[in-house]
Design a protein around this nucleic acid. Structure first.
Length: 273
DNA sequence: ACTAACCTGTAA
DNA sequence: TTACAGGTTAGT
């Protein structure tokens, strides 16, 4: 579920509570949520370490520990990281409990797709799937020229290109559809047909939509919650995602809904071309 | 480039 | 009962 704005919101709401806090004990309720380590090895590795800070790369959360180890968490569709200031009984889908010096951090995931892994910090880029990620769309280095370069000679649909994490890191089904609507571009355009001006519009729309998503603390269309269990509010601002068959809020035309690049895609055939 | 698979819950 | 869900990967 969480895309860049949701993961960024989790990062921020979690960091407030856990910066410089020591992990005292780990309980693996469903050990498969941790990949790459035997239960005991993982516990030994992380127990007693202090959380220095939390970074984000695309949809990955990176919890930096002292002694140069990093926990990498990916929520996939329904993963959550919840902070509780007091003891809290694990809920039905809680898989890992980190008992902290102050409070507890629970990783839960209804669909069991989400994962946590531990890697040595200096090797993090080359040793994980992180090294294949495209640029961060909200960083200054991300310019229209970079976007054009990332599309390269691809001939795929815009929808597929923007969902591809190696092209650009952090966009998912919601923010891709919203960005394309804002840019006035049809999701089934081939990326090699875009003009300079269209690339520029798309670049602007991507930054705009992602920043608005962060400002609204993410989109709680269904399951998403931040580290405090709070919903975001960007669902109220959605122009197309989840609105197939309803009228376009700009021109009134019925919004199209069809499967593209394997994902349900909603767009306005009048406003987007 | 598309599909299935990984899972569970919810809504049609 | 069936389809579908914010993601990714491995297969064809």
């Amino acid at each position: 579920m969480p895309e860049l704005p949701e993961v960024e919101t989790i990062r921020r709401t979690l960091l407030e509570h856990v910066r410089d806090i020591k992990i005292e004990k780990i309980t693996l309720i469903w050990p498969s949520a941790v990949c790459g380590w035997e239960d005991k090895a993982f516990k030994d590795l992380v127990t007693g370490r202090r959380i220095k800070t939390i970074d984000r790369r695309g949809k990955y959360l990176m919890i930096l520990l002292d002694e140069d180890w990093t926990l990498i968490a990916h929520m996939r569709m329904t993963g959550r990281l919840n902070y509780y200031p007091e003891h809290h009984e694990p809920e039905k889908h809680t898989h890992v409990v980190f008992q902290l010096e102050r409070g507890e951090l629970h990783f839960s995931d209804v669909r069991k797709f989400g994962r946590i892994q531990a890697i040595p910090t200096p090797l993090r880029i080359s040793e994980s799937s992180l090294h294949k990620l495209g640029p961060e769309p909200l960083e200054e280095a991300f310019t229209p020229a970079v976007l054009k370069d990332r599309f390269g000679k691809k001939k795929v649909f815009l929808k597929a290109a923007l969902l591809d994490q190696t092209v650009l890191a952090g966009m998912g089904n919601i923010y891709v559809d919203e960005s394309l609507f804002l840019a006035g571009l049809s999701p089934d355009r081939r990326v090699d047909t875009l003009s300079e001006e269209e690339i520029s519009k798309l670049h602007h729309a991507i930054q705009n939509v992602l920043q608005a998503g962060i400002d609204a603390q993410g989109t709680s269309f269904r399951d998403y919650r931040d580290a405090n269990g709070e919903k975001g509010s960007f669902q109220q601002a959605l122009q197309v995602y989840g609105r197939g068959g309803k009228p376009c809020q700009v021109c009134g035309q019925t919004l199209e809904r069809k499967r593209l690049a394997g994902r349900i895609t909603v767009y306005c055939s009048r406003c987007q071309s």
